[in-house]
């Protein structure tokens, strides 16, 4: 099988992991190029800035058509559509009920990156940001997610929206699962724990440092 895309990748990045995880769930082959985000700051190199002037990771270059995508939500959408076309259960974009809900989850996932993601970079790599402010914002996000997932549980649902996991779940999963890296534990969040376990149980689930495999399923 030929690679569907090239991923400019960093092993500790939760955003890069969204793409690796989804590719693993879809069994979609891709080519990975390791970028030395830290300690080398290679995402700010001339080579990478000419590919992505925003200087962020990941960057996806699709094999067919050579599209360059620099937003993880767009990459998740591309992968879902590339895999299953308009009928993909992962991205019910035009479903009147689910479509807007999935968009809500994608945007919420970006908010997790800006809060928990930053707090984690600060706690782990001493990133020069206000770690305490990022952590407070992260706690607010976890509480909002807990409320949403409690609503879903009252309705008998397990995923962010609908009866099948969507790219909204994948957009939110990594930084929630990694929040203990920033000192934000999951103890007070039973609905989040239930949802994390559901994602980790998906066939083809892939791990990253900080997210252990479910040894009980092995």
């Amino acid at each position: 099988m030929s690679a569907a895309f090239t991923l400019y990748d960093y092993v500790l990045s939760g955003n890069c992991y969204k793409i690796r995880l989804f590719a693993s769930l879809l069994a979609m082959p891709y080519q990975s190029v390791a970028i030395d985000f830290y300690p080398g700051y290679e995402h700010r190199s001339e080579r990478m800035l000419s590919l992505n002037p925003a200087g962020t990771l990941p960057v996806m270059v699709t094999s067919a058509g050579g599209q360059v995508l620099t937003e993880t939500n767009a990459m998740l959408a591309w992968m879902a559509l590339h895999d299953g076309g308009a009928q993909t259960p992962w991205f019910p974009a035009v479903d009147p009920a689910l479509g807007p809900q999935v968009q809500q989850g994608l945007a919420f996932g970006a908010g997790l990156t800006d809060s928990i993601g930053l707090a984690r970079l600060h706690a782990m790599l001493d990133w020069p940001v206000d770690g305490e402010a990022a952590k407070r914002a992260g706690l607010k996000h976890l509480r909002a997610l807990e409320l949403h997932l409690t609503d879903r549980q009252i309705d008998g649902g397990l995923w962010w929206a609908g009866a099948h996991p969507t790219i909204a779940d994948l957009a939110c999963f990594p930084y929630v699962a990694l929040s203990p890296d920033a000192g934000l534990e999951h103890d007070g969040f039973p609905a989040i724990r239930r949802w994390l376990y559901a994602v980790r149980s998906l066939p083809g689930f892939a791990t990253m440092p900080g997210i252990h495999p479910l040894h009980e399923l092995r």
């Binding site: 960093y10 290679e42 890296d181 440092p209 252990h212």
Partner: peptide, 16 residues
């Protein structure tokens, strides 16, 4: 980059 990230992967698995 691959060498560094292999080492970082291992060490970050230990961090938790």
């Amino acid at each position: 980059a691959d060498l560094v990230q292999f080492q970082q992967m291992i060490f970050l698995q230990d961090r938790s």
